[in-house]
Every structure is written in C-alpha cells, then in structure tokens.
C-alpha cells in the first residue's frame, strides 16, 4: 500500500497523544497525578496538540476535506466514522479535565472523573483507528490478530515514554516510571517482531486462479490494461518497501525500541539529575522517530489482493 505521510503522521501522533492522555487520566483517577500544576497541564497540552495535529493531518489525506463533517454519520457500519466520533467526543472530557485541573489546581474529584472518561475515550479511539485497518479483508497483513493489540501497545508505550520525559524534566519522575516505560518498550519490540514474523508468512487471502475464475494450472499476467501506472498501481501496488525492507526494519527496531529501552534503563538506574533528564528526553524523541519508520513499513509492506490481477 502507498504510505501516505499524512496517514503515517496521523496514526503515530494520535497514538502517542492518546497514550499520554489516557495515562494522565488514569493517574488522576488513581490519585497519583503529578503533584505540580504545570507538568500535568503541560502533559495534557502536549497530548492534545499531538491528537489535534494528527487528526488535522488525516484530514489532509482527504480528497474533499471541507466535507469531513459527513464522516460522523455512518457509525453503525464504518470504523472510520466511529473513530471520528470517538475522537471528537474525547475532546469533551479531556477539555474538562484540563480546565478543572487548571481552575482547582488539583486533579481530584470530578476532575479525576473527567480524566478517567478522557482515558476511556482515548482507548476507544485508538481501538477504532486500529480496526479501520484490521477490518480490511483484502490486506492480510492488516487483517491479523496483531493489528489491534499492536496499536494499543504502541500508543501506551509512546505515551508512557513521553510522560516519563515530561516528569523527568519537571523533577517529578522516578525510577519506577522510567522502568515501566522501558518494560513497555521491550514488550512493544517483542510484539513488533512477532507481527513481522506473521506478516512475512501471511500470503494473499485469494489466489490468481480464484481471482480470474480460471481453475488449475498457472495463470500469468501477460498484458496490463494500461501502459502507465494507474490509481490501483499507485495506491495499492507500492513496492519500494520490499527492496529496503530489512534495512528499514533494523532502523525501526533501533530507533523505536532498542535505543529508547537502553536510555530508559539508564534513566531508571541513575539518580535524578541531568543524565536522567537527557536520557528520558532522548528516549522519547528517538521512539517517536522509530515509530514513524515502523508505521511507514506498516503501510508500505502491506500487500493488497488486487495486485493478483497485475502479477505483482
């Protein structure tokens, strides 16, 4: 599939933003919200910026963005529609959470409740995003049991790494937080490797014989209907990823998982200070960059069934 930058940015940024939002909401519910006012509000602000930026970027992918409001109508059948509604609905408790925190100065009582609702909205929205891909029958790499847990895991992982960086910078961090972020990063790495192993053996869900209705033997494409690339080849026949697959996977693993995990362990083991702050910030930046490569591969490596007609 063609890896559109708008969609890569959308899934990566909203994933990290919703992860961060959900963690802040859950911490407030558990009475463990960051004590200071500004780290909490800065975290919430960052989450909302990531979410809003991601959603706006996804609108950039549309042919007619001015009609985007129509996408809220088909929630009964469409995961994309559900995602849109859930994303907009989540802004309400998230806004109340931030406003209450700002006005009352603490994340307790109804403010914590709003935080919990925002966390729920965040999880639902990430699930909807994942299901947009996980429900597409023609793409075996997406319609797999790895897709939905993967999206949730990478959102939680990048959200936690961001939260750790934020709290380390404000002096509210700690070894537990950094350690948890390292553990989640390693879990994400294991999940990614397992997904790739699955993807590499997942063939197309149909054969060229059933696609053409010609049973038995071999069916070879000897002439295409067009001499230049058409929409199908541009959108569904993307092949660059296959050429650079191994190198890109190494880059994604290093930036997204290995380097952040090492940095986070370093942050957890060193006493609070410049090293902890630097390692935590670097881990967050590195992981986001790695996830962008990971997401590029998620799109670019996916093979669409229609390519059976083109012998690709």
């Amino acid at each position: 599939m063609h890896p559109a930058y708008s969609v890569i940015l959308f899934t990566t940024a909203t994933g990290a933003g919703y992860g961060l939002l959900a963690l802040l909401g859950l911490m407030a519910l558990a009475g463990m919200a960051p004590p200071g006012l500004w780290p909490g509000l800065f975290g919430l602000g960052l989450a909302l910026v990531l979410i809003t930026g991601g959603l706006l970027s996804s609108a950039g992918h549309l042919g007619r963005p001015e009609r985007a409001w129509r996408a809220f109508s088909q929630w009964r059948s469409s995961w994309l529609s559900r995602e849109g509604i859930s994303a907009v609905a989540t802004f309400v408790p998230a806004g109340l959470f931030g406003l209450g925190w700002l006005l009352t100065g603490r994340a307790e009582g109804w403010v914590a409740l709003a935080g919990a609702l925002a966390a729920l909205g965040a999880v639902v929205t990430v699930c909807c995003t994942a299901m947009i891909y996980a429900s597409l029958t023609p793409i075996a790499q997406w319609r797999s049991r790895f897709t939905l847990p993967g999206y949730l895991l990478y959102a939680a992982m990048s959200g936690l790494t961001l939260l750790n960086a934020l709290l380390a910078a404000s002096g509210d961090g700690g070894s537990v937080l950094a350690g948890a972020a390292a553990a989640l990063t390693l879990a994400g790495w294991a999940w990614k490797r397992a997904s790739w192993r699955h993807d590499d053996t997942a063939g197309l869900p149909a054969t060229v014989n059933s696609a053409t209705g010609l049973p038995g033997g071999r069916v070879l494409s000897i002439e295409w209907p067009h001499s230049e690339e058409n929409y199908l080849l541009k959108e569904m026949g993307y092949r660059v990823a296959r050429k650079h697959r191994d190198r890109l996977r190494l880059i994604a693993q290093f930036l997204g998982f290995l380097a952040p995990a090492v940095l986070l362990v370093l942050a957890a083991l060193t006493p609070a200070g410049a090293v902890t702050v630097g390692a935590s910030l670097l881990a967050a930046l590195c992981q986001l960059a790695g996830l962008l490569v990971e997401r590029w591969l998620f799109f670019a490596e996916a093979r669409h069934t229609v390519m059976l007609y083109y012998g690709r």
Binding site: M1, H61, L62, G63, R64, P65, R67, A68, R70, A71, S78, L80, I132, L136, T137, P138, I139, P205, A206, A211, N230, Y231, L232, E235, M236, H304, T305, V306, Y309
Partner: peptide, 18 residues
C-alpha cells in the same frame, strides 16, 4: 464523498478509481 479512499482499499477487485 470526502475522498478518503477507504472503499478502494476494501475492494479486492480493484473496481474503484479515485
């Protein structure tokens, strides 16, 4: 139509063109 292209991804037969 908002041109999100999702329907063309969902069609295994390549029947939709943007």
């Amino acid at each position: 139509c908002i041109g999100c292209k999702l329907c063309s991804w969902a069609c295994p037969y390549g029947a939709r063109e943007f």
